[in-house]
Amino acid sequence: MTAQRTLATARRVLRQLSHDPRTIALMLGVPLALITLLYWAFHATPQTFDHIGPALLGIFPLIVMFLVTSIATLRERTSGTLERLLSMPLRKADLILGYALAFGLLAIAQAALATGLAVGLLHLSLAGSTWLLLLVAVLDSLLGTALGLFVSAFAASEFQAVQFMPAVIFPQLLLCGLFVPRGAMPTALSYASDVLPMSYAVDAMTRVSRETSVTGDLTRDLAIIAGSALLVLGLGSATLRRRTP
């Protein structure tokens, strides 16, 4: 019963998106354009592209899914459909998993395209397996979905929801090791970097691109990403209230 409600919700979310081809095009196309731009900008120093490329393949799915989920759930809250669904025999987990499933599928498509472009056409050096890279991208997107769902509870309007992106994502971007290696940061920031989930998203991508085998460190990174996604999903589900003031 529950699985059917989850599947129905995922199908509904995808149907909503299917009526909005421009959003789909932006979600899938913008990362491709940015990766190409990056490749072009670092044309003279391909080793820099090899350094930043994998990190971006981890960051894109996280950011895009964060944005889409926070807006989609905010809409669900403000349009009254959430209140209606919660007055029906639907478990909160059915709803959240439905969203996670729909956006997870989209994330796979996005990650497959981005990876295909970076590795296939732009010769990004990848030591590990492409499948592993895809797995990391999907976990990153689930983390983005979880964060988006959570912050949407604190946004009363689309204006506020969009502002949560610099508030929640940018600090993680600055401290994830992309700009300054995590070990070279001031101690306080290095600790902050250790507790922010995006750091592990970027670390995992970097490891997959450099190491041929699955190391213990990679497994740990993946577990941390999945664990944070589940934790934040749990927190997000606590913000879906059946009774509101």
Binding site: R12, R15, Q16, H19, D20, S79, G80, T81, E83, R84, S87
Partner: peptide, 14 residues
Amino acid sequence: VGYVTQAPSVYVDL
């Protein structure tokens, strides 16, 4: 129990 809120609560993009 069926409930219909004052503002229509359906998905406008479906």
